[in-house]
């Protein structure tokens, strides 16, 4: 009898779990849905309220976009170069740093790790003003490098990768590759990177999304039109105060998020599978 009661409460629990998960999933999807639907509606239609079904103004919204000197292809390319470069720099060099921290026994190892933890605490704003002044003095405006290179030092990514290595890396693999006569860089690139792929992919999503959506640093540093990223272009659209074309704004926003969708779903199987992070201290 007790058993059946347990079963009952178990299935009630399951119902609650599924309801909550489905609700949360809906709340996640709805904004995207509204955005995509509104991208196909005219401004007056949008002003009259929400709708569930798409309308027929996609093309006219697209034409308004192009008319407003919105160049989605250029914007996409610029955003892609910046976010792609940032992501590659962040994950590769963080993996390298994390591997250096875990695989080798060097004198300053522990102090360096503590140092990285401290660096993690520096809020971006603490250096923002100095950073902009510095870049202007350096003449590095309208240049993608100041947006990409700083990613090489990403303390949070290093931390994540280090925890991952602590949980996954076995001494045997390292030793084995050394016995085979592989150089350290070779074994890092050929053996360690594949092992770290789940952690790299997870962090790649985080970094890519953050970089793609970053508005303010590019806004301050990139002033030439042919260097604009997609978020800057959308902000420009909203800035045309005389005529607020909501339909084309939503279309612009949708275009901004589409590449992220592709990138995210390509790597999402790593999110599904999950990665194991070592939690216990050495």
């Amino acid at each position: 009898m007790e058993l059946s009661q347990n079963k009952k409460s178990f299935s009630i629990n399951m119902v609650i779990i599924y309801i909550l998960c489905i609700l949360l999933a809906l709340v996640s999807i709805v904004p995207f849905y509204i955005m995509f639907i509104n991208a196909t509606r005219s401004t007056p239609e949008i002003q009259s309220g929400l709708a569930l079904l798409p309308s027929t103004h996609l093309l006219s919204n697209w034409n308004v976009l192009l008319d407003k000197s919105f160049n989605p292809f250029k914007g996409f390319l610029n955003s892609f170069i910046i976010s792609g470069g940032t992501t590659l720099c962040a994950v590769y060099f963080s993996a390298l740093t994390a591997y250096g921290l875990v695989a080798y026994n060097w004198k300053l190892r522990q102090p360096f790790f503590t140092f990285i933890l401290c660096v993690m605490m520096i809020p971006a704003q603490a250096s923002a003003i100095g950073f902009y002044k510095f870049m202007y003095q350096f003449g590095w405006t309208n240049n993608f490098l100041p947006l990409i290179l700083p990613a090489i030092a990403s303390p949070t990514v290093v931390f994540f990768m280090r925890q991952y290595l602590l949980a996954t890396l076995s001494t045997e693999i390292v030793e084995a590759s050394r016995i085979d006569g592989a150089g350290e860089f070779y074994s890092f690139n050929k053996i360690m990177m594949p092992i770290m792929m789940p952690a790299v992919a997870t962090q790649a999503i985080f970094v890519f999304v953050a970089s793609w959506n970053n508005l303010f640093t590019p806004l301050i540093l990139l002033t030439q039109r042919d260097k604009y990223t997609l978020p800057i272009m959308v902000s420009l659209l909203r800035g045309d105060i005389y005529r607020t074309e909501f339909g084309s704004i939503y279309l612009g926003l949708s275009l901004t998020v589409l590449p992220l969708f592709v990138f995210y779903f390509l790597l999402s199987r790593y999110i599904i599978a999950g990665v194991a992070l070592g939690g216990v201290k050495e």
Binding site: T141, L215, L219, I220, T223, R225, S235, L236, R238, G239
Partner: peptide
Amino acid sequence: TIIATTDGAYQPALDQ
């Protein structure tokens, strides 16, 4: 160079 005023970025960029 076109920078919208909405997000308050035109003046900082212009001044710099």
